[in-house]
Design a protein around this nucleic acid. Structure first.
Length: 922
RNA sequence: GCCGGGUUGGCGGAAUGGUAGACGCGACGGUCUCAAAAACCGUUGUCCGAGAGGGCGUACGGGUUCGAGUCCCGUACCCGGCACCA
C-alpha cells in the first residue's frame, strides 16, 4: 500500500492508477484503431507511421463462459498484444481485435436450467469478460469487435451458407462453381439431379443420437466409450436426415496447401492424418458362381499375389446375393459359426454386428467372421479364394471390401490365424510375418507379368498398369475424411436460411430475407427420452414453434406455404469465417469489401496463399476448427469473394498455464491457496494433503483470477510475469508467489526514473559511459531478435539484466532510460507510457520507433576466452576481441593451471576459435 | 499399437556443436533500522578440500567429435493426437 511518505512508489495502487488512466486515454484517442483502405473505417493506410506495411494478428476467439477468467486464459491474448505493440513500433499498421464465439451448448444448458434467454446470459458473460480483459490493457481496435450471435454477423454466416448451397465442385477444374453453371452444363434444372451436387446438401446419414439429451451430438462430444460427454448418457448411431458439407471435395487441396502455410509441423501432420489420403488401387475379384464381381480397395496392390481370401463388411450390399445355400465340401467348422447353412451363419453374424455399438466394436478386437460359401477369383493368379464377412472391415471406407494379404497385413494375419488360412510371403525383407515394411517382391509372377525383384513402389506401379490394361482394376486415391455433418437439434445456434416446398425440397431464402432470426420458444431444451430408448426420434426446439415453422413467402412465383428448417448450425459455423469480418466489421453490403480483404489478407507475392499474419491459439483446434475454416475460405476464394487462398498464413500454438491442486485424505479438493509447503510435504493446517497437477478450475479449487493479480500487483506485472514464465508454446505451472519477481523488476525500472518520495524525475542528460552503452546496444540487439522470434521470456531476462546493470551502477542517463522504456513498452505498456511522459514526452509511445542498435557499440572491449584441456575448462582469459589465434595459444600455454592440467604430456593439437575458445589436446 | 512432443538445480526455466544452469522464485548471509517490512549487496547443482583447486553432473546405455544438453543409434518414463481406415 502506498503511504504518504512514499506515494510515488510503484505499488499495486499506483499501478492501478496509471493503468486505468492510460486505458482511458488510449480509448479516447483511438490509439489502436487501424485504418482500412475503404469503407466506414477508411483512413490513410500508406501513412508515414506504417513504412513496414500491414500486420494482421488474431487470437482464437473465446467462448464467453459464465465462470469468468482465470490467469491461464489471457496468456495468448497477452502474447498477441505484445506482438501487436511491437509491430506497431516497428512501423506496421496493426489489425488486432477480439470477437466472441457466443453460440453453443453451455449457454443453452444454462438457459434450460434458469429459464433465462441464452442471449441475455451470453451478453452478460461477454460484458464480464470484456471488463476483465480491458483491465489487461490489450491494444485492440475496439471498433472491430463482434459476437457471432449479433444479427449482423448471423446474416453473413447464413449468406456464406447460401453461397456453399448454391455451388458445386468441378473436379476437372479443381474449383467450386455456381450451381447455375452446372444447370447449363447438364442441361437440366431438375432438383433431384442438381441437389445431389451441391456443396451443402441434405442426406440420410448415421449420426450420434443421444436420447437422454434429446439431441444429436458431434463426434467430439462423444467419449471414447460411446457416451455423451455431458450427462454420460448412451449414444446410438442412427440414420437421420441431416445437412452435410461436401468438404471431401476439397480433400486434395486441404492436404496440398498445408505445404504453403507456416504452421507447426505437428498440426500439419494431424490434419494430414485426419484427411488420410491414401493412394492405392481398386481391384475387381470375380465371383464366377453368381457372375458378380466384388471391388476391393487396397493400398498394397503389389501384394496381390499374396491375397488368400476376400472380406466384405457386414453391411456390404453384395453379401446377401453371394451367400450360398449350402456349405461347400470340406468347409472347416470354424468358418461356419456353428450354423447349418451359410445363409443362416451370415444372417446371424450380420444381426450381431448391427446390434453392436461403436464402443462394443472397439472393445472386442478379436477377429470374428463367417464364410459366405462363395469363392472369388484372384485376378493375378486365377486362384479361387474364400469370401468372408467380418466386422473388422468397415463399411464407410474404401469400397467396404478388402482383399486379405495375411503375410503383409497385421489385421489379416490375425484373422488368418484364427481361421486357419494360408499366409504366403510375397515381399522379402528382414522380419517375421506379417511383414509390412519395404522389401522386394517374391513369388509374384504369372504368364504375363512378374513383380519379382521389384521394390514396393515399383511393384505397385507395374501391377496397377497391368490391371488397368486388363480392365481388372484402376489406380485410385481414397480419404479417411468424411463430409461434415452440419445440423444440430438445438436452439442456440444459427437458423438455416432454408425453407422446404410442398415436395420437401430445400429452397434457399434470398439474401434480402437475411438474417433469419431465432424465434422465441417456450422451452429451450429439446425433448428428452429414456436414455436407452433407441427408437426415439429427435425433436428440435424450433420444431415446437409451429407459427414460425410454417410460413407464407413469395419466393418469385407468388405467395406460397413453406416449412422452415428447424435444425440449427453447429457451433463451428461462426468461427469458420470470422477472420474476414475483422477486416470490415460493419459492412452491410458485402461480407467484406474486396479492397479491405486484399489489403489485410491478400497474398503479397506470386504463389503465396495470403491469410492472417499471425494466428495464436491452443492446439486443441488442430483439426476441426482449422479444417472447417480453411474449407469455407477456399470455397469463398473459388467463388471470387476473397483473394486469399488460406485464412491463416502463420499459426502458433500457445501452451497452457496449469496449476497444482490438493486433496485431503478423503480425496476431496481443498483450497490450493491455503495449502502450505513444509518439510518436503504439503499441509492444510496440520493435515497432510496430496498434490495433483492439472487444469485450473473451480472444481479443483485452484483457480487464480486476473482480478486477484490486478488487485495485488497490477496488470503490467501480470503481463510481464506471464511472458517471462517460459517459452510461449510450452505449458507450465502457475506459481503466485513468483509473480513478485516481475513486480520488483518494474519497480527497479520505475526507481531509475522517478523519485519514490517526491515523484521528481531523476533522468539526467549526461551521456552514458561506454560500458553501459555497449550493454544497452547488446540488449537492443538481443531483445529485438527475441521479440521477432516471440521469445518473450528471454527478452524479459535481457531487460532485467540491463535494468540491474543500471541500478548497480547508478546510471540514470536519458540516453539509456529512453530505449529501456521503449523496449519495455510492448510488455508493460502502462508503466512504460507513464515513464515516457515523465521523461518529458508528449503523447503515446505506441507509434514511436522501437530502439535500433548501433553495431559498432555492440562490440565489447574485452571478451572471456575459455581455455580447455581435453575439453575441460582449465582457465579463463580476458582478451581483446581482436586477439589472434597465435596470441591466444601463447596466452593459454602461459597459464599455470593449463600447464598443470597438461601435466607434461605432449601437446598434439590446439583448436582455437578466436577469440572465445582454446582447446589443448594432449 | 501407430504418429507427434518432451525429460536440465529445491521450483519455473537459459544455453548458433564451444564457460551447463542466463533471468526469476525460494533458501541462506549481510547493509540499513530501536525493531520489522521494503529496498540494496552477496552466496546458492553436487561431492572432496582450510584454500588453491579437483571429481561427478542435462532421464538411462552406447556412438560420432579436439569438444555433445545440443548430432546419430538404442532403452525407460511422461504428455498429446489417432486408433481394425486395408
Amino acid at each position: 500500500m502506498s503511504t504518504p511518505e512514499n506515494s510515488y512508489r510503484y505499488d499495486s495502487t499506483l499501478a492501478a492508477d496509471i493503468e486505468s488512466r492510460w486505458q482511458e486515454r488510449w480509448d479516447a484517442e483511438g490509439t489502436f484503431e487501424a485504418p482500412n483502405p475503404t469503407g466506414d473505417l477508411a483512413g490513410d493506410v500508406s501513412d508515414e507511421r506504417f513504412p513496414a506495411g500491414k500486420f494482421f494478428i488474431m487470437d482464437m476467439f473465446p467462448y464467453p463462459s459464465g465462470a469468468g477468467l482465470h490467469v491461464g486464459h489471457p496468456l495468448g491474448y497477452i502474447a498477441t498484444d505484445v506482438v501487436g505493440r511491437y509491430r506497431r513500433m516497428t512501423g506496421h499498421n496493426v489489425l488486432h481485435a477480439l470477437g466472441y464465439d457466443a453460440f453453443g451448448l453451455p449457454a443453452e444448458q444454462y438457459a434450460v436450467q434458469t429459464g433465462r434467454h441464452p442471449r441475455e446470459t451470453t451478453l452478460e458473460n461477454i460484458g464480464t469478460m470484456q471488463r476483465q480483459l480491458r483491465r489487461l490493457g490489450l491494444a485492440h481496435d475496439k471498433r472491430r469487435s463482434f459476437a457471432t450471435i449479433d444479427p449482423e454477423f448471423v446474416k453473413w454466416t447464413q449468406w456464406i451458407f447460401l453461397q456453399i448451397f448454391d455451388s458445386w465442385y468441378d473436379a476437372e477444374r479443381g474449383t467450386a462453381r455456381p450451381i447455375r453453371e452446372l444447370v447449363e452444363k447438364l442441361g437440366t434444372d431438375d432438383p433431384a439431379v442438381i441437389d445431389q451436387h451441391r456443396l451443402a446438401y441434405v442426406s440420410e446419414s448415421p449420426v450420434n443420437w443421444c436420447p437422454g439429451l434429446g439431441t444429436v451430438l458431434a463426434n467430439e462430444e462423444v467419449t471414447a466409450d460411446g457416451r455423451s460427454e455431458r450427462g454420460n448418457f448412451p449414444v446410438f448411431k442412427r440414420n437421420l436426415k441431416q445437412w452435410n458439407m461436401r468438404i471431401t471435395a476439397y480433400a486434395d487441396r486441404l492436404v496440398d496447401d498445408l505445404e504453403r502455410v507456416d504452421w507447426p509441423e505437428p498440426v500439419k501432420i494431424m490434419q494430414r492424418n485426419w484427411i488420410g489420403r491414401s493412394h492405392g488401387a481398386r481391384v475387381r475379384f470375380d465371383l464366377p458362381e453368381t457372375g458378380d464381381g466384388v471391388e476391393v480397395f487396397t493400398t498394397r496392390p503389389d501384394t496381390l499375389f499374396g491375397a488368400t481370401y476376400v472380406v466384405l463388411a457386414p453391411e456390404h450390399e453384395l453379401v446377401e446375393r453371394i451367400t450360398t445355400s449350402a456349405w461347400p465340401e470340406g468347409t472347416q467348422d470354424a468358418w461356419t459359426g456353428g450354423a447349418a447353412t451359410p445363409a443362416e451363419a451370415v444372417a446371424a453374424y450380420r444381426a450381431k454386428a448391427a446390434a453392436k455399438t461403436d464402443a462394443e466394436r472397439q472393445e472386442d478386437r478379436e477377429k470374428t467372421g463367417v464364410f459366405t460359401g462363395a469363392f472369388a477369383t484372384n485376378p493375378v493368379n486365377g486362384e479361387a479364394v474364400p469370401v468372408f464377412v467380418a466386422d473388422y472391415v468397415l463399411t464407410g471406407y474404401g469400397t467396404g471390401a478388402i482383399m486379405a494379404v495375411p503375410g503383409h497385413d497385421a489385421r489379416d494375419f490375425e484373422f488368418a490365424t484364427v481361421f486357419g488360412l494360408p499366409t504366403p510371403r510375397v515381399v522379402d525383407g528382414e522380419g517375421d510375418l506379417p511383414f509390412t515394411g519395404d522389401g522386394v517382391a517374391v513369388n509374384s509372377a504369372n504368364d504375363e507379368i512378374s513383380l519379382d525383384g521389384l521394390g514396393v513402389a515399383e511393384a505397385k506401379a507395374r501391377v496397377i498398369a497391368w490391371l488397368e490394361e486388363k480392365g481388372r482394376g484402376t489406380g485410385t486415391t481414397t480419404y479417411r475424411l468424411r463430409d461434415w455433418l452440419f445440423s444440430r437439434q438445438r436452439y442456440w445456434g444459427e437458423p438455416f436460411p432454408i425453407v422446404y416446398d410442398e415436395h420437401d425440397r430445400p429452397i434457399a431464402l434470398p439474401e434480402s430475407m437475411l438474417p433469419v432470426d431465432l424465434p422465441e420458444v417456450p422451452d429451450y431444451s429439446p425433448r428428452t427420452f429414456e436414455p436407452d430408448d433407441v427408437t426415439s426420434e429427435p425433436e428440435p426446439p424450433l420444431g415446437r414453434v409451429q407459427e414460425w415453422v410454417h410460413v407464407e413467402l413469395d419466393l418469385g412465383d407468388g405467395p406460397k406455404q413453406y416449412r422452415r428448417e428447424t435444425n440449427t448450425m453447429p457451433n463451428w459455423a461462426g468461427s469458420s469465417w470470422y477472420e474476414l469480418r475483422y477486416t470490415d466489421p460493419h459492412n452491410d453490403a458485402v461480407v467484406t469489401d474486396p479492397a479491405n480483404e486484399a489489403y489485410w489478407l491478400g497474398p503479397r507475392a506470386e504463389g503465396e496463399t495470403g491469410g492472417v499474419d499471425l494466428y495464436v491459439g491452443g492446439v486443441e483446434h488442430a483439426v476441426l476448427h482449422l479444417l472447417y475454416a480453411r474449407f469455407w475460405h477456399k470455397v469463398l476464394f473459388d467463388l471470387g469473394h476473397v483473394s486469399s487462398e488460406e485464412p491463416f498464413h502463420r499459426l502458433f500454438n500457445q501452451g497452457y498455464i496449469q496449476a497444482y491442486a490438493y486433496t485431503d485424505d478423503r480425496g476431496a479438493y481443498v483450497p490450493a491457496v491455503d495449502v502450505q509447503e513444509r518439510d518436503g510435504g504439503y499441509f492444510l493446517g496440520d493435515q497432510p494433503v496430496a498434490r495433483e497437477y492439472g487444469k485450473m478450475g473451480k472444481s479443483l479449487k485452484n483457480s487464480v483470477t486476473p482480478d486477484d493479480m490486478y488487485e495485488e500487483y497490477g496488470a503490467d506485472t501480470l503481463r510481464v510475469y506471464e511472458m517471462s514464465m517460459g517459452p510461449l508454446d510450452v505449458s507450465r505451472p502457475w506459481e503466485t508467489r513468483a509473480v513478485v519477481g516481475s513486480q520488483r523488476f518494474l519497480q527497479r525500472v520505475w526507481r531509475l526514473a522517478v523519485d519514490e518520495e517526491t515523484g521528481a524525475p531523476l533522468a539526467t542528460d549526461e551521456p552514458a559511459d561506454a560500458a553501459t552503452l555497449s550493454t544497452l546496444h547488446r540488449t537492443i540487439e538481443g531483445v529485438r531478435a527475441d521479440m521477432d522470434a516471440m521469445r518473450f521470456n528471454t527478452a524479459v531476462a535481457k531487460l532485467i539484466e540491463l535494468t540491474n546493470h543500471l541500478t548497480r551502477e547508478g546510471v540514470r542517463s536519458r540516453q539509456v532510460l529512453e530505449p529501456l522504456v521503449l523496449m519495455l513498452a510492448p510488455l508493460a505498456p502502462h508503466v512504460a507510457e507513464e515513464l515516457w511522459t515523465r521523461l518529458g514526452h508528449e503523447g503515446s509511445l505506441a507509434h514511436v520507433p522501437y530502439p535500433a542498435f548501433d553495431a559498432s557499440l555492440v562490440v565489447e572491449e574485452t571478451v572471456t576466452c575459455v581455455v580447455q584441456v581435453q575439453g575441460k575448462v582449465r582457465a579463463k582469459l580476458e582478451v581483446a576481441p581482436s586477439a589472434t589465434e597465435d596470441e591466444l595459444t601463447a596466452l593459454a600455454m602461459a597459464d599455470a593451471n593449463v600447464q598443470r592440467a597438461i601435466d607434461g604430456r605432449e601437446v598434439r593439437k590446439v583448436v582455437v576459435r578466436a577469440p572465445k575458445l582454446v582447446n589443448v589436446v594432449v
